[in-house]
Design a protein around this nucleic acid. Structure first.
Lengths: 225, 225
DNA sequence: CCTACCATACTTGTATACAAGTATATCACT
DNA sequence: AGTGATATACTTGTATACAAGTATGGTAGG
């Protein structure tokens, strides 16, 4: 478990939540691992209460399973869960980018343009590690343009199911065709071309098609069922 | 605030959550009302801890706003929030019913058929109050058939935003055309006719089109902005 | 009368104590 | 050796105590 320092502004609960999310997403906390409220509170140097509140929240997103009086465990990778997260992401991203085509304005174009330009810059300089967070921000910005930012927030925790499997995939998409995808999406939005925009999202998400059987054969103990 | 008895099986936290949800949905707890962890724990005859945990969960769904050291309040009706919930429900319901057309089997048909038949029975007998929960169950069953029940769970709390506005609407849909809608949806699913099924969902949800201006003029103090 | 201060009674955030249930290891007995 | 009872050390669920910040109302002073 990777422990980072507590930000002085955030509450103890938010701190515990942040640390847990990061470790689950990065698979530093392996699926199936037992986590104890007491142990974690000692590691984070905060009391059980905020730790417990964070664990409960993650249990609501099915990322942790709580068995009363027995223990809490990082959820095993559940193919059904991953599939539902993927499904939800796809249909929502597609509908939202269509709405963004209707709602886009000068300010929105500038926001998206600045982001994509920066991605292209980093790509040209080979600083590909910078692109990861810009990628996430780009998708979030599209939700903001479409005035659907609450939906983004609500779904973000759930998408960890999808993203941690991507992280587990040996052949992570490293060719950064994604930057080209983002440029095309932006141009489609600017042209208010809903159909093309939605198709681009569909194609984009298909890049992250994962080979469950392959991953499962390598780490069967991470999987449910 | 309407207090019901605690089910002996449920935990104190689930109890608090259930009571709060019901009261928010029914508008027994009016938007803007202050709720105190201490006061509520006294009313429910449980301690602050489970009450607090329930409040935190509802705050994550934007149904309660917590202002540290100042108080917690039932969220005002936020048109943007309602719009996002409505948007999410529409796109998800449409995509899920299409998936249901692919995944439907004998067992699923029986489940849906039993439900709709019962709705039709109650309608013919004028026992319309029974239809409300069958309606909810029907929609949930479609998610189950499509193997998307987690998405239903995740979204259910969020849909309270949408549903409480419906409850506030003076002209609640009482004509129960909805039963006919359900029958048509079932037939479309049985025929694996995705296009028709999705169109029916779209039309169905449009029945609940609410006149925000009308409601706002009657209860302006319930609204945000 | 008006203003500034301050005690007070709230609020939520965090820490800790206790309750109740579970798994395990040990030890006695067959 | 094998089996079963039991003590023990965990677990999460709940209750309570304390910390820190905020709003309010009363009061003293101008």
């Amino acid at each position: 478990m990777r422990i980072v320092a507590k930000n002085s502004r955030e509450t103890a609960r938010d701190y515990a939540l942040r640390v847990l999310k990061e470790n689950i997403l990065s698979l530093e906390l392996k699926p199936g691992t037992a986590i104890s409220e007491n142990e974690l509170s000692a590691e984070l140097k905060i009391s059980r209460t905020p730790v417990r509140e964070a664990i409960i929240e993650l249990a609501k997103a099915y990322l942790i399973e709580i068995y009363p009086q027995r223990g809490s465990f990082i959820s095993l990778i559940d193919p059904k869960m991953v599939d539902e997260a993927r499904f939800l992401r796809k249909i929502t991203d597609m509908a939202v980018i269509e709405t963004a085509c209707d709602e886009i304005d000068e300010e929105g174009i500038k926001m998206l343009e600045d982001n994509v330009s920066l991605q292209e810059y980093y790509l040209s300089k080979g600083m590909t590690d910078k692109i990861f967070e810009l990628d996430n921000q780009f998708h979030k910005d599209i939700y903001v343009v479409a005035k659907k930012d609450i939906i983004y927030e609500i779904h973000s925790t759930l998408m960890i199911h999808f993203d941690r499997v991507r992280n587990l995939s040996v052949a992570t998409v490293k060719d950064f065709k994604v930057v080209g995808d983002h440029r095309k999406m932006l141009e489609a939005i600017k042209a208010k071309d809903k159909k093309t925009a939605a198709e681009l999202v569909d194609k984009h998400l298909n890049r992250y098609q994962i080979d469950e059987k392959e991953i499962r054969s390598q780490k069967p103990e991470y999987f449910k069922g």
